[in-house]
């Protein structure tokens, strides 16, 4: 669609300027906004893992500290068996490639799909809208890597990019996030004071626990639109 003609836009801006001028007393000292005072984590970072575990559990998520890479595959197999899963969808991150999960999972009869292997049709008809996303709909488990972990809220931060589609952590009923100890930050302040690191992609999502609602009688119900279970598997630093 054509960009808006400058006339309406300028009219609105002029109107705003007029409104601002109408009450100059309310225009407090112009200048930069006060910055966030708290700085990033201090030199000696305390062990944040116990706090992280506590917070994730509080929000109804499951935390698992893996001793090594092999344990991750075992964890996924157990989980898949519990819910009778046949298909798992995962992203193609370096971390997940390095875990070499696919062979082990295949041996257990589990099909592994890597992101959306098919291409998105250029012009989607109603049929292909459903069709090319079928893998995510079939998968019982969505396994993704993450960008950061926030200890004091039990949150994982995911940035969408090619190979890590937004819906991998949204459509399957169980989302398993896999992170590394070095990705843990104390909390929100630390994340945003690293500013440069959080160059926003098209979508950066903070996930804290499973999907929930309290819209009927303020009663907490888990799993309304998004995943019904949320797991974080943490790989300790070597």
């Amino acid at each position: 669609m054509k960009e808006q003609t400058d006339k309406t836009r300028l009219k609105l801006l002029k109107r705003l300027q007029k409104a601002l001028n109408a009450s100059p007393s309310a225009n407090v000292a112009a200048g930069p906004c006060p910055a966030s005072s708290s700085r990033a984590c201090s030199v000696a970072t305390p062990n944040l893992i116990p706090l992280l575990e506590e917070e994730i559990t509080k929000t109804g998520g499951v935390f698992y500290l893996a001793r090594d890479k092999e344990e991750i595959a075992q964890y996924l197999i157990t989980l898949a068996k519990r819910v009778n899963a046949k298909t798992i969808i995962r992203d193609n991150s370096i971390l997940l490639q390095g875990l070499k999960l696919d062979g082990v999972l295949n041996n257990e009869g589990l099909q592994v799909i890597i992101d959306y292997s098919g291409t998105r049709p250029a012009k989607e008809t109603n049929e292909d809208k459903a069709a090319w996303r079928q893998p995510a709909k079939d998968a019982a488990l969505g396994v993704t890597s993450i960008e950061y972990i926030l200890a004091d809220t039990g949150t994982v931060v995911i940035k969408s990019r090619p190979g890590l589609s937004r819906t991998l952590s949204l459509v399957p009923p169980i989302h398993v996030a896999i992170g590394e100890e070095r990705q843990i930050l104390p909390g929100l302040e630390a994340l945003f004071s690293q500013g440069a690191n959080l160059q926003p992609g098209s979508a950066v999502i903070f996930i804290t626990g499973p999907s929930r609602t309290a819209d009927i009688e303020q009663t907490l119900t888990i799993g309304v639109h998004g995943p019904i279970e949320f797991h974080l598997i943490l790989l300790p630093d070597e």
């Binding site: 996303r133 004091d152 589609s165 929100l188 098209s202 979508a203 999502i205 804290t208 929930r212």
Partner: peptide, 20 residues
């Protein structure tokens, strides 16, 4: 403390991304 999801959306889907 934080709700289940906070989305930070910057522009539409980028090259190579499958959804969005």
């Amino acid at each position: 403390k934080l709700p289940s999801y906070v989305s930070l959306i910057t522009g539409p889907r980028r090259d190579g991304e499958k959804d969005g």
